[in-house]
Amino acid sequence: TLFRNPVLSEALENLLYQRDGLALGICNGFQALIKLGLLPYGHVQPLKADSPTLTYNTIGRHLSRMVETKVVSVMSPWFSSCKAGDVHTVAISHGEGRFVATPEQIRELAAKGQIATQYVDLSGKATYDSEYNPNQSVLAVEGITSPDGRVLGKMAHTERFSAEDVFQNIAGNKLQPLFKSGVEYFK
């Protein structure tokens, strides 16, 4: 609601398209970006009844665990330090994280490279299996970008990692270099 204020919407558009800025929304931030229309459209705009959105997990409760996510598109500056196919073990913690969109919208997002990351099984394959796609997101979507890649929204908490003392007993590549990529974009 706050960002629907014309002054703030204009400032955000200015940041992204006049000042060459980036925007990142993780979990609730992703929800805010999608509710504003910044995702997947790239601009603050009213939503339609069938616009892509995030909704309640199919199990009807909060989920908190580690998941495997695969980078499927590196067109966004946020993924400049990644390669397509990289798999990261990342924490999730949400009750409304299931991405939904029509089949046509999914095809369009995929064709434009806007599906950034997907939930995957241990072989790196996107799946509807709730063991690996716990919220049952359509096409196992975990994160999407705006058409130009400047805006990224994702459910998994990339920021919840420290090389020194967090998740030491959990296997997998837990360092997803989004923040490094964001900083390097401005160098």
Rank of each mutant, 00 (worst) to 15 (best):
L122N: 14
S51T: 04
L175G: 02
P40D: 05
Q118Y: 08
Y185H: 14
V71G: 10
S130T: 12
I106G: 02
E142S: 12
S181C: 11
A101K: 04
M75S: 09
S9K: 10
R4V: 09
N14K: 11
T102M: 02
P147K: 00
C82R: 04
S93Y: 02
K112R: 15
P134L: 10
T145K: 06
K180N: 00
Q176F: 12
L36N: 05
H157I: 01
E96K: 04
E104T: 02
S64R: 09
A126Q: 12
P134F: 10
S64C: 13
V151D: 01
F99Y: 15
L12Y: 05
A23Y: 07
H62E: 14
S64I: 09
R150T: 08
I59C: 05
S162F: 00
A23H: 01
E104I: 00
A23N: 01
A84T: 15
F161C: 06
T127Q: 08
P177N: 10
T89C: 14
F161W: 15
L109S: 05
V71N: 11
S130R: 15
P103K: 01
K174H: 15
S146P: 07
A116G: 09
Y128G: 13
F3E: 09
S9C: 06
G85M: 00
W78K: 02
D50T: 11
L178D: 10
W78T: 01
V72K: 07
L2H: 07
F79Y: 10
G37V: 08
